[in-house]
Write a protein that binds this DNA or RNA. Structure first.
Lengths: 234, 234
DNA sequence: GCAAAAGTGTTTGGATTACACCCATGC
DNA sequence: GCATGGGTGTAATCCAAACACTTTTGC
């Protein structure tokens, strides 16, 4: 047994722990990330991922929900954990280890508010993000990879789309997320097994043949998955 | 701007941060995890994942390497990050947030040492792990899923096998990791594109036709991957 | 009718599966 | 020779890609 260990144990309680909350949305044919312009030191005036310190009696998913709510007023959204970053010099004011959490939201459904952290916020296309504060570029890059993996293996794409969507919108979302063109006929064949609800509704105000609107049948999906009759895969 | 924030900032530096180091090995047809019997409070005498607090000027991968070395004397091994766990009550002695790291080792090549944390260590088959200290069962479960994903998408299986191995050993490893039987002929067809070096050597001391020994051609793999000519997929 | 995008069918080649069979070694 | 596991070939099937085609709307 390392004798010094129990003696020095208390000295280790000198770190701070933060969460960075990556909020992804989809609009104008691109996946966007919600960024804030910092209104405090360090990195005052620079663009960054919204984040906050974890409170002493808060669990991590709870802290992520709080940060998301303070920024977007959105509740009850699914949050996913990303990587953890803890280089000793990553925060100039002390040892702050941070964990990335990310959520997928419908941009139109919210008015993200500047609130406490920033006077300015912006939705930036993920492939056009410039230099950010701290090590946030590395956090963004690693989280995009995890997002892509989630999009391939779980039906989180529907979190990004409105309740009712066309099949073409779904295809464009995947094209945007993976930066590659897809064949329409083949894409539709691939998604044929996904439990969709075909609504009676159609697109409005388009000057071509209106597309049918679909929605994702969460109940049927859960039922099929629990019976191992379906596995989401894109 | 939240005025209280900068004033209270220092108060947040009261957390501790640990790493849990999951060391996986393969023997007797099963994937095993290295566990220790704790020789200190809390959870004295209970089985746990080896872990340690992160030192003030240590980066996370660095801390993981150190812990791995102290336990196994192994250096320069690839370490992979897993999930981060931070429930406020997960550690009875204070707020300790922990991050899982895992490594894949060749069991025969090392004599894991009890060292500072425990007088007793054991390799336990991953599907036979009983109740562990702290929230370590949840950490194990989540890390096994990440390990499986790694085994499907990256050539980490070779970290678990000796330098030279038979194709059947490789197949048994995958059968053990995913708990499913595989067809021999089809397995071999699937791995035909993997850059193997066929050695001139054969199995010794078997009472049937000896199998040819192969090794993984890391150089060729790196070359192919960098040219996007090959993508590991199982 | 024409433009534009929705939506579908057909062919092809490659991968996956199931299964049968031959081969080399020890005893 | 026989038992044991190593190692391979074939046919059926499924899946993905490429591409052409028809349909429905607004103007």
């Amino acid at each position: 047994m390392k004798n010094t260990y129990s003696i020095e144990f208390e000295k280790f309680f000198s770190y701070s722990f933060s969460l960075d909350c990556l909020i992804f949305g989809y609009k104008d044919g691109e996946i966007h990330l919600l960024l804030i312009k910092r209104n405090m030191e360090p990195f005052l005036g620079e663009w960054a991922i919204p984040g906050d310190l974890v409170y002493p009696n808060e669990d991590l998913p709870q802290a992520a929900s709080r940060i998301l709510f303070e920024l977007t007023q959105l509740k009850d959204l699914e949050l996913h954990q990303g990587g953890t970053f803890g280089a000793p010099d990553r925060h100039p004011m002390g040892r702050v280890i941070t964990c990335a959490y990310f959520a997928l939201v419908q941009i139109n459904q919210l008015n993200a508010i500047a609130s406490s952290w920033a006077n300015e916020i912006a939705w930036i296309p993920i492939y056009k993000i410039k230099k950010l504060a701290f090590d946030h570029n590395a956090i963004v890059d690693s989280t995009i990879l995890i997002l892509q993996h989630k999009l391939k293996t779980q039906p989180v794409c529907f979190d990004l789309l409105p309740e009712k969507f066309t099949l073409n919108e779904l295809q464009c979302l995947y094209e945007a997320a993976f930066n590659e063109a897809l064949n329409k006929a083949n894409f539709r064949k691939k998604i044929k097994t996904i439990p969709f609800l075909k609504t009676n509704e159609k697109e409005q105000n388009v000057k071509h043949r209106p597309a049918i609107l679909y929605s994702f049948d969460t109940n049927k999906y859960e039922r099929l998955v629990s019976k191992e009759l379906f596995k989401f895969k894109m």
